[in-house]
Design a protein around this nucleic acid. Structure first.
Lengths: 351, 351
DNA sequence: ATTGGCACTCTCTAAGCTAGAGTGCTAACG
DNA sequence: CGTTAGCACTCTAGCTTAGAGAGTGCCAAT
């Protein structure tokens, strides 16, 4: 077996050492030297040999030394390899899952459930928990209603899935009387109640492209109103709920106040975080961003462990946990996984 | 003029020195010694004399020395005296107020205005801005509506003051059909639209105490529903909007991470902050809490400058600024004052 | 009452030193 | 030829020392 220093495929021994080092660093938070690692790894090697291998791992970018005589710590790449190839997660026991399930009473409305999930994540992990607020594409419309507010402003009320109520103020091009609105609402209710939002969008598109000859005045007005109601306004950005941000303050990695400030400003700004979370929507299962992998500078030294949550029919959003790169992934991953499943299940529309 | 060391009434000279010291400390953030103060105060005294007076001020609790040879800094009490008796505020010029007014377009809805106010406060002062969300006692009801959601759950919609829409899910003791709800809503609309919430509450109380003989079944059901709609649910706590918390991170006073964490947790918890802000509802004009005066430990080293904001008819809430005790009160006070007035004005119901 | 003088106290900074930890290299070993 | 012991070297963290600077409190003189 010839050794190839720059080869991405690591020797068995090197992997074992990397694993031991990452595990120890996650536990202790301090650089590890060759002597300690020899003891820790279980391998029957001398410190000198371990030193050679560690030097190789450093060359390959998996480790680095804070300074000459401080032992070594994992790089982002080191964590990545650890997470991808060396990590064994213990799934939660049924009993523990049962404990969590208590917090997701299907009767509650979505906002409360999402809050719960976020708090739960932060509480279980002692890190920052984050849950995106779902923007539904599906969901069955139960009722539509309109109330005139003042000249040219109409309040539209949309009830989806029994528990979700959406208000939107529509600015109209002309006044609509109460009876007129009632007609419109009757028409739209007759047409759309019981259908999915997605279906409705399609139907609307269809109606608008169709020959308008066969429409009554009422219909075409109603369809125009509905179109505006079902178009997500551009300024309404996605949003998320976060809990336990302050947990991050205790980590030595963030003792730098300036860095901490930037992070919290990013949390408030929401833009970058949303964008990052959105990227997790595409893939199933637990996803992990380590350090600068995400491309955002504020995430230097931080990891994000996420999972989508979804009903039987539809992907709703993303939830996860933000903490320093030095977190016990084996414990965090199943927590995020299970929380996502429980939340998704609790948000399933009821029969 | 005999000197009485423990007398709360300070000599003219002592006051002048205290003023100079506080001003300098607010500007520089560093303890001031007798020599510097002699120069700064404009008084024609020797450092030795100033030292004597400073010792008196320390005995009286207005100043303290961080350590033997570090000069002196104001205590909370020192700030208090400064703010109450020594401070001269320069009201904003009309031009500056005009600049601020731009941010309070009366057309916008309350949430947006409150957000603006909070951001504006934080931006102008480079501190944390906070605005409580008004819970109206008054406000004219424009429309009531009901939608059945599922068995025993009814969505009530209440439109107040053109722009404010409140949803509430009422859990009822039995099912109500759509027509039944329509009747109830018709009755309540006829009865209440155009009236103040306060008036309605009174009317409801009256109706319930009255002899029920003369009521139809419909009326008494409607009144019961209305009662529940107009009773603020207990779990719905007061709330506030905060902006620029992260500004506080830059202050040396909060370089202690543990303290910072506690503060941010208090912000998230909201309970203590709300309670403190509520206390400001009682008095008119700008109010100031300095350091531990508020009674909350997290406010050690911090000041709160607040003012109520109100429409012509009604006190709506409180807004203000949180920062270290060492803030330029002369600048902050008029900013808070004017912002409160502008916000109150913008929230006035439109004829 | 005010002031100059003075001894004293305390902090802050820099410099120097040591112990400890860990490395990389080399030469010897099996 | 991979592995290992030995060793010189490097770097940090913590401790001590020393001096400068700032400011005080007190006392005696004005």
């Amino acid at each position: 077996m010839s050794r190839k220093p720059a080869d991405p495929i690591l020797e068995e021994r090197a992997q074992q050492l990397l694993k031991a080092l990452v595990q120890r660093y996650i536990r202790e938070g301090q650089p590890t030297g060759s002597r300690t690692l020899t003891r820790e790894s279980g391998l029957n090697l001398s410190p000198a040999t371990v030193r050679n291998i560690m030097a190789d791992l450093e060359d390959a970018g998996y480790l680095r030394s804070p300074h000459t005589s401080a032992g070594r710590v994992p790089t982002d790449r080191g964590y990545r390899f650890f997470v991808d190839s060396l990590l064994t997660v213990n799934p939660l026991r049924e009993r523990e899952i049962e404990q969590l399930r208590i917090h997701f009473d299907r009767g509650r409305n979505p906002e409360v459930l999402i809050d719960s999930a976020s708090n739960l994540l932060s509480w279980l992990t002692q890190l920052a928990g984050v849950v995106t607020i779902p923007r539904r594409h599906m969901g069955s419309v139960r009722q539509l209603g309109f109330l005139p507010l003042s000249e040219r402003r109409v309040l539209a009320i949309l009830v989806v899935n029994e528990r979700e109520v959406q208000n939107r103020v529509l600015h109209t091009d002309r006044d609509y009387s109460g009876t007129e609105l009632e007609h419109i609402s009757n028409y739209l209710n007759a047409e759309f109640v019981g259908k999915d939002i997605e279906q409705i969008r399609a139907a609307l598109l269809d109606a608008m492209n169709n020959d308008r000859k066969e429409m009554t005045e009422l219909m075409s007005v109603a369809i125009e109103v509905a179109r505006r109601l079902f178009t997500r306004p551009e300024d309404e950005d996605d949003d998320y709920v976060m809990a336990g941000e302050t947990n991050l303050m205790t980590f030595a990695e963030l003792s730098n106040i300036e860095k901490l400030k930037q992070l919290f400003e990013a949390f408030n700004q929401k833009r970058e975080i949303i964008h990052l979370l959105d990227r997790c929507l595409t893939a199933d299962g637990v996803q992990i961003f380590i350090g600068q992998e995400s491309g955002y500078e504020v995430f230097d030294g931080l990891s994000l462990v996420t999972s989508r949550y979804q009903t039987d029919d539809e992907v709703l959003g993303v939830l996860g946990v933000i903490g320093p790169t030095r977190i016990p992934y084996d414990r965090i991953i199943p927590i995020v996984d299970v929380t996502a499943k429980l939340l998704g299940h609790a948000l399933n529309p009821q029969h």
